[in-house]
Design a binder for these strands. Structure first.
Length: 636
RNA sequence: GCCGAUGUGGCUCAACGGUAGAGCAGCUGAUUUGUAAUCAGCAGGUUGUCGGUUCGAUUCCGACCGUCGGCUCCA
């Protein structure tokens, strides 16, 4: 006798234990068809796995994120099965579900081509038609290791060996295909409906570049064809937002072979850049920061002292002048240290917040360069805060608030991560522990969500990172707050305490935008090039209908320019439709169309990029409204 | 850096073993125009670079450089 309690509280009785699928079939055909996975007594459960005699059952379909991941994970298995049949010598690595899809890593000794993907996709389709049952099987550790060793699946053996002692080791079988997997999975291959393999790429085993490179095949799957089409449409839309495309179209910046990863900013890009800095300086002044500037290159000895020579040299550019070795700065901190040392500091001076818009150069691997998001020269909106140990929490909290204030201006969402001690690092375990706990405690006290990112800290200390997503949902680190007990030590920074004795200050490195370059890239995508008026390189474009309106347009433009508004006049010999089309393409927020009627009335016909023709407006009124919109930095 | 793909005028793309073509942009002229493309003409490329194969290469091969998608790393 088995009792199954459903989500709505009702219960059903069966003469013997049943599977979730049997219950679903009992309830409705449609439910049986749409259910991907079950939750039995709160645990994810294969729909074809017999439930305990007393079970609380929940049936999950594709709309449920967990079920969706399972569906895609099953698609990854399906792909692995197809690959194994087509390439019998393949060794399987891992194949998880990811945001929007899945991948599977294969060791096949030879690279896959896009043509191979089609072949694999076709084989997958056949396997779906065969509707092979996917069965769970539990093994002992010894059995599992023996089984996968015999199969020659050394990556799987390695995975099993790394599983915790008490882990239940399970496999899933579909036809002749067997894979190590915690599961659960969809009940049979026939339940996987719409899928598409999207790309191949090399990926290192366990993400470590010292390991062998595997072939990673990416794909995605859905239950309805329309969902796949919608997904592909979204990708197309995202491409239109790509900051590299918009950066060229809007003439904001360019990249050149002459300097890979070294961006050139065009006049319109610099306008946005400067507006960002204007806001930045306003907000930093409010928070009591002082701005400094330190040199672009400094003696190599300084970098030895700071620890960069030992920990960061591979990313640095060096140069030799008059038998002295210099390094182009990859970070601004040593400069800030030297500034701190120019005076005796008192505890009364602390916290001391020194900000620097520093251009830093880092030799990043060629393969990682990406538009403005990942470059080799970038300007950090850096700051170094020197403080008493007792001020740590308050200062970090202040930075978090400042970043939040700034990001709100743009309507940007972000995610917080705490990164802990990396392999290559300075300082004792205790220092790292204290510093990391301090960061955690600030976030806990503020009640904000965060994720721990183990081993991803800077070499001198743990950090809180602010991550923002680009249009393709790739996440980029923007702001970061890094606690540092090392640098003050290395540079022997001191302050005179209340007791008249020398003490060691604590330091925080932090950036708010992060790199102005990357932040600009993020903003281009965030706004899809349609910047809010305060950021728009051209705020108003005057469009005369005919030559006889040019003079009037020039006068209107002059008056707007005088008020500090960025204006262009399109006095080309073209029809109004053409000029509008062009201005819309440039994403100019306001267009003023001027013809006979407007000249006569002393007005202009207003058109906005988002709402179209709004009819005639009174110019002084328009100017006033515009100035207010700019001053308050209104979002679109 | 590694794996794969890719590289033709400012941009988007075509052609192909017999020394390149279109649209847009640009320039000139005509047109003086009312809310997303007026017409005509002109000009613009040693087909990323360097080698090799070939009677001949932009086309085939190799190396390098850049770019794109990943891996990894970080702002």
């Amino acid at each position: 006798m088995a009792v199954v309690t459903l989500r709505d509280g009702s219960s059903r009785e069966y003469p013997q234990p049943v599977t979730p699928l049997q219950v679903a079939e009992d309830l409705s055909r449609r439910l049986a068809k749409e259910t991907i996975v079950a939750k039995v007594n709160g645990v994810l459960w294969d729909i074809n796995r017999v439930m305990p005699e007393e079970a609380e059952l929940e049936l999950l379909d594709f709309d449920n994120p967990q079920a969706r991941d399972i569906y895609r994970h099953s698609t990854a298995h399906l792909m692995a099965q197809a690959v194994q049949e087509l390439y019998p010598d393949v060794k399987l690595a891992i194949g998880p579900a990811i945001e929007d899809g899945f991948y599977y890593d294969f060791d096949l000794g030879e690279p896959l081509t896009p043509d191979d993907l089609e072949k694999i996709q076709r084989r997958m389709e056949e396997l779906v038609k065969e509707d092979l049952e996917i069965q769970r099987q539990v093994l002992s550790r010894e059995e599992a290791i023996k089984l996968f060793s015999e199969m020659g699946e050394n990556y799987k053996v390695e995975l099993i060996e790394d599983l915790p002692e008490d882990a239940e080791i399970s496999c899933y079988r579909q036809g002749d295909f067997l894979d190590l997997c915690a599961g659960p999975h969809v009940g049979s291959t026939g339940r996987i409906r719409v899928f598409q393999l999207t790309s191949v790429a090399g990926a290192y085993w366990r993400g470590d570049e010292h390991n062998i490179m595997l072939q990673r095949v990416y794909g995605t799957s859905f239950v309805k064809q329309s969902q796949l089409e919608e997904h592909l449409r979204m990708l197309e839309e995202a491409k239109k937002r790509d900051h590299r495309k918009l950066g060229r179209e809007l003439d904001l910046f360019s990249l050149n072979e002459a300097g890979p990863g070294l961006p050139f900013y065009h006049p319109k890009g610099v306008i946005i850049w400067n507006e960002l800095l204007k806001l930045w300086r306003e907000e930093h002044a409010i928070d009591g920061y002082m701005e400094i500037r330190t040199p672009q290159i400094l003696n190599q000895r300084l970098w030895e002292q700071s620890g960069h020579w030992d920990n960061y040299a591979e990313n640095m550019y060096f140069t030799e002048v008059d038998d002295n070795n210099f390094a182009l700065k990859p970070m601004n901190c040593p400069g800030a240290m030297l500034w701190y040392l120019t005076q005796h500091r008192s505890y009364r001076d602390l916290p001391l917040r020194s900000a620097e818009l520093g251009l830093v150069h880092r030799h990043e691997a060629s393969g990682v360069l990406h538009g403005l998001m990942r470059v080799r020269a970038f300007t950090q909106d850096d700051a170094h805060i020197f403080m008493l140990p007792s001020q740590i929490e308050e200062e970090i909290s202040g930075v978090i608030d400042l970043v939040d204030r700034l990001y709100k201006v743009f309507g940007l969402d972000y995610r917080l991560e705490i990164s802990t001690k990396p392999e290559k690092s300075m300082g004792s375990e205790e220092q790292w522990e204290t510093a990391t706990q301090a960061l955690i405690s600030v976030l806990e006290n503020k009640g904000v969500d965060y994720k721990i990112n183990p081993g991803d800290g800077a070499f001198y200390g743990p950090k809180i990172d602010f991550h923002v997503q680009d249009c393709l949902k790739r996440s980029w680190q923007c702001a970061t707050i890094q606690l540092d007990f090392q640098m003050p030590e290395r540079f022997d920074l001191t302050y005179i305490g209340e007791d008249g004795q020398k003490h060691r200050p604590v330091m925080v490195h932090r950036v708010a935008y992060g790199a102005i370059d990357r932040f600009l890239g993020i903003l281009i995508e965030h706004f899809a090039g349609s910047f809010p008026v305060w950021l728009a390189p051209v705020q108003v474009k005057l469009l005369p209908i005919a030559d006889r309106h040019h003079q009037y347009c020039k006068e209107v433009a002059a008056s707007l320019v005088k008020a500090g508004i960025r204006v262009e006049v399109d006095s080309r010999n073209e029809k109004i439709g053409y000029k509008i089309r062009q201005a819309q393409g440039e994403k100019v927020p306001y267009m003023l169309v001027v013809g006979d009627k407007e000249v006569e009335a002393g007005k202009a016909a207003l058109r906005t990029r988002s709402q179209g023709d709004l009819g005639q407006v009174d110019l002084p009124q328009f100017q006033e409204r515009l100035l207010e919109e700019i001053k308050t930095r209104q979002l679109n």
